[in-house]
């Protein structure tokens, strides 16, 4: 079997608020100096899901794909160290500044070109823009089924079973392969790589494909030119919060005063 894990490198979500800056004129985040980009946490969990199945059924090749600049290799290497077999970086200036649609388009073309893919694992959403669209987009463009926000994923008998997290419970769905799944954090933490694997991953070469390698795509389909989504305004909201200590002689009076305040603010 052949699994694909889609991995995105994002700006570190743990960037201290004071270091997080935005260029409002360009509608861009200014990367904080000295803070390296990281693998989107949900994609690490998607890799974990794929690896667990590989451990269970054996004979699975896992290819990790990332769309991004050269530095995204670090994200690929990280998933390789966890135990993935091959890495593929989709790198072209034309791919830059795309949106969820162009990303799904380029990824789906790459998956098509790989040919024999049985299952695609994505994170439930990228931890930067939090759209949650790319997995669904890939399934749409490849015309295969998709289950989102899976907490447990299993593959057997040419079927994928996904336990989905719903607001009011768990739903179990079954899809014929090939299929796409987007994986949620309920699945568990991504594994800590063994040193042997880190060193093997360091030695592996990551295949690189650019626009010319994907025959069905033109320059106007991808990146900024192919965007379907226009970003109107990027800004850091003002988050003001006030603290008020509720006065009162005793606990009961304090509680009464608190209730009065909450009613006043129309919260109760």
């Amino acid at each position: 079997m052949h699994f694909v894990v889609c991995a995105k490198q994002i700006l570190d979500p743990d960037t201290p608020p004071s270091a997080f800056k935005i260029d409002e004129a360009k509608n861009e985040v200014i990367p904080a100096p000295g803070i390296a980009p990281v693998l989107s946490q949900f994609d690490g969990i998607a890799a974990e899901a794929a690896l667990r199945i590989k451990e269970k059924i054996g004979d699975v090749k896992i290819t990790v794909i990332s769309l991004g600049k050269g530095s995204a290799q670090a994200a690929i290497k990280q998933v390789l160290a966890m135990g993935a077999d091959e890495g593929l970086l989709l790198e072209d200036d034309a791919f830059e500044n795309g949106d969820h649609y162009t990303t799904a388009l380029v990824l789906s073309e790459a998956i098509k070109k790989l040919g024999d893919v049985d299952a695609v694992f994505c994170g439930r959403q990228a931890a930067d823009w939090d759209m949650g669209q790319v997995g669904l987009g890939i399934s749409q463009l490849l015309d295969i089924p998709c289950a989102i926000i899976g907490k447990n994923v299993d593959v057997s008998d040419n079927k994928m079973t996904v336990e989905r997290v719903l607001l009011d419970g768990i739903e179990t769905v079954e899809m014929a392969l090939p299929a796409v799944v987007t994986v949620s954090n309920e699945l568990g933490e991504p594994r800590y790589p063994k040193l042997q694997q880190i060193m093997q991953a360091a030695k592996k070469t990551v295949t690189k494909w650019n626009l010319d390698d994907l025959e069905n795509l033109n320059k106007t389909d991808v990146g900024e030119a192919g965007r379907k989504l226009k970003l109107e305004k990027l800004f850091i909201p003002d988050n003001d919060s006030d603290v008020e200590f509720i006065e009162g002689e005793n606990a009961q009076e304090k509680a009464n005063n608190l209730v009065a305040k909450l009613r006043e603010a129309k919260i109760l």
């Binding site: 570190d12 743990d14 004071s18």
Partner: peptide, 13 residues
């Protein structure tokens, strides 16, 4: 590995 310090989630620089 990622951030060069052990204090995950710190909001300080």
């Amino acid at each position: 590995e990622q951030r060069g310090h052990p204090w995950k989630g710190t909001t300080l620089e």
